[in-house]
């Protein structure tokens, strides 16, 4: 493997808010072609990790290298996104007042230079939007206001907005939260379809079954550090993981 197979390489990452340390000397690797699950109890630092990756949160020390060559230390959110990191948020984050088509159009144009984004869409771009709409199952709703979509459809639209811009890495924060069984299956199928040698996908989820279905390997975060890493089967039987989750459960009970 060369370093160009590395979609995301994190080394020695520290993030803290005031005196409270959220990520502690974290090192982590995601390769292209991989679907990586990130699990862990609340407060383990999952969302903070995504925040650090996408430039939402500043990190104190450590390095994050994207696609084997881009260190994103001082880059802002748009610059990081243009490196090919697309992020879906925990709460569906779409432009409710715009139509589905306009949502996808904006996503398509976003990664480009300002001047290019003022032109009319080229036929090629039109085609790209339509294909994406079919992929996420919203080709019938292109003219609808995005705000009127069902919750699951909003999640898919958000994923669609990421893939229309040809990302290298997809970061999905709780992609099936609030979805019913059928919608989960559809989402899993969508992720399977997206999977490819040019793409790395990171899924942060609480739903273990979903993670087991879609992910090739899983990282368990606990208390800002990596507890275990490996295929879901192995992780499930790891005593430490069981302790962490059971301990959590008994607290909740």
């Amino acid at each position: 493997m060369t370093k160009f197979d590395q979609a995301i390489y994190v080394s020695g990452l520290n993030v803290s808010f005031g005196a409270f340390s959220v990520l502690k000397n974290l090192s982590w690797l995601v390769n292209f072609g991989e679907v990586k699950g990130v699990i862990g109890p609340n407060g383990a630092g999952k969302t903070t990790l995504l925040d650090a990756l996408t430039g939402k949160t500043e990190y104190q020390t450590g390095d994050i290298v994207v696609r084997g060559r881009h260190n994103i230390k001082d880059a802002n959110e748009p610059a990081i996104a243009r490196l090919g990191l697309g992020r879906k948020f925990q709460k569906p984050s779409i432009f409710s007042g715009l139509s589905v088509f306009e949502n996808l159009e904006i996503a398509l144009r976003s990664g480009k230079a300002i001047l290019q984004s003022i032109n009319q869409l080229s036929p090629h771009e039109q085609k790209k939007i339509n294909e994406t709409a079919i992929l996420i199952g919203l080709s019938d709703c292109l003219g609808k206001d995005a705000g009127t979509l069902a919750h699951g459809q909003k999640q898919w639209l958000e994923i669609g907005m990421l893939i229309v811009a040809n990302p290298a890495v997809l970061l999905l924060d709780e992609p099936v939260a609030g979805m019913n069984g059928e919608e989960r299956t559809k989402t899993a199928a969508l992720i399977d379809k997206l999977k490819g040698p040019e793409m790395a996908i990171v899924v942060v989820e609480h739903d273990m079954q979903f993670v087991e279905t879609v992910c090739d390997s899983v990282t368990v975060l606990h208390d800002g550090q990596i507890l275990v890493e490996g295929p879901m089967q192995a992780v499930k039987s790891n005593q430490q993981v069981i302790d962490v989750y059971l301990g959590r459960d008994s607290e909740n009970a």
Binding site: T54, K56, N76, E77, P78, A79, A81, R82, G86, R87, F89, S93, I94, F95, S96, G97, L98, E102, E105, I106, A107, R109, S110, G111, I114, S117, I118, N119, Q120, M161, L162, A165
Partner: peptide, 25 residues
Amino acid sequence: DAPLGRFMRAVKEDESRLRFLGFDT
């Protein structure tokens, strides 16, 4: 009504989404 207008509305709706799509708002 132009693309710029759509971006303007997108800023109004959810500026940070636009930023995470790679657009310098």
